[in-house]
């Protein structure tokens, strides 16, 4: 086992009956990494997570963890933890008993068990809630119990299903900090599934963007945010002006268009609204919509080759609906896309 493949998925294919949800997926995860599986619903991210947990049978391929092939190892023998989106606490058991559940199954008893459960509860700040039932806790507290329940088992990998999606903005930040702290303190390898790019960018060491059961791109948050390699990823992280390239020219509904500057050799180019130059340039557009966003102002322009979204600082003079504006899509600012789908 090399350090780069503590957990590895090899040619993993997963299916529900005849419909393939994940096809030929390869992924290597380092020990102690915090990985985000990011993608829209139906992209296979949750399916992949369930297969790592052992809750879904693998159709073909392998799952290896810490040097062992666990493809056929049942879920209860994998040392993989999962924090469910709904938390899945046992409603009939107290907070203490919830956290003790797995330890008791391991045969732990007496003072050892007590110490372990108490330190688990303490680490999530819920020591004084030990005797409450889950229904008596807030959503954020329930989630911390779920985290403690998984972590006291000292899993090799902790999976998290949309860990921040059920929380309000304040709790989100709190939980995000909590997860990063737990990860830092224990060094556990964490994989979380999300459809929210902001969540993935804020939390992960590496992001795996998935689409239709395949990996679109793997990279650091900076890579994903600044250097998307496909039109899908570009669109997903907020590049709203995306065009394919042909012979160095932009291919649009109005034919091939020359760009200012020398375009890179790529399959397509993508610009965030902020990257569009407004006021000068070779292209003409008409303002079809504007919206004020505090620091900036967004414009939707109609051009001869389709709608363009531009964003400028709010301090610049505002344009009204119907105004004709010159604009530019500078090639040197664009993110070059190697795949256009």
């Amino acid at each position: 086992m090399s350090d780069a493949s503590y957990l590895s998925l090899e040619k993993l294919t997963l299916a529900y009956g005849d419909s393939v949800a994940v096809a030929n997926l390869d992924l290597n995860i380092r020990k102690g990494e915090l990985i985000a599986l990011l993608g829209p619903s139906g992209c296979g991210k949750t399916t992949t997570m369930r297969a790592i947990a052992g809750l879904l049978a693998v159709k073909s391929g392998h799952v290896r963890l810490d040097g062992a092939d666990i493809t056929r190892v049942p879920a209860n023998k994998r040392a993989v933890g999962l924090m469910f989106q709904s938390y899945a606490l046992f409603p009939h058991l107290s907070v203490y008993e919830n956290v003790a559940f797995g330890l008791k199954l391991k045969g732990m008893r007496g003072p050892e068990l007590e110490t372990k459960v108490e330190s688990g509860l303490k680490s999530v700040g819920l020591s004084t809630f030990a005797n409450r039932k889950p229904a008596e806790l807030s959503g954020g507290q329930q989630q911390r119990v779920a985290l403690a329940r998984s972590m006291v088992m000292e899993p090799k990998v902790l999976l998290l299903d949309e860990p921040l999606s059920n929380l309000d903005a304040r709790l989100r930040l709190e939980m995000r900090t909590e997860l990063q702290r737990v990860q830092k303190e224990t060094g556990v390898t964490m994989i979380f599934v999300t459809h929210d790019q902001a969540e993935a960018l804020a939390l992960a060491d590496r992001i795996v963007v998935m689409k239709s059961g395949k990996i679109e791109q793997i990279g650091s948050p900076e890579d994903i945010y600044n250097r998307p390699t496909s039109s899908f990823v570009a669109d997903f992280v907020g590049f709203e002006n995306i065009f394919p390239l042909e012979n160095g020219k932009m291919k649009t509904s109005a034919g091939l268009i020359d760009l200012s500057g020398k375009p890179p050799s790529a399959a397509g180019l993508a610009w965030r609204p902020r990257m569009v130059t407004l006021g000068t340039g070779p292209f003409q557009g008409t303002v079809r919509g504007t919206s004020f966003a505090g620091d900036s102002r967004e414009y939707l322009l109609d051009s001869s080759f389709g709608p363009i979204k531009a964003e400028v600082e709010a301090s610049q003079p505002a344009h009204a609906l119907g105004d004709a504006l010159a604009f530019d899509l500078p090639a040197e600012k664009a993110a070059p896309l190697s795949r256009f789908v």
Binding site: A53, G54, L55, A75, N76, K77, R78, V80, G81, L82, F84, S86, A88, L89, F90, P91, F101, G102, L105, K106, R149, S150, M153
Partner: peptide
């Protein structure tokens, strides 16, 4: 009763 509590129990070591 949510069915995911059974999966949670399995991942904590139960059959």
């Amino acid at each position: 009763l949510r069915s995911d509590i059974e999966e949670a129990a399995v991942l904590l070591g139960s059959s």
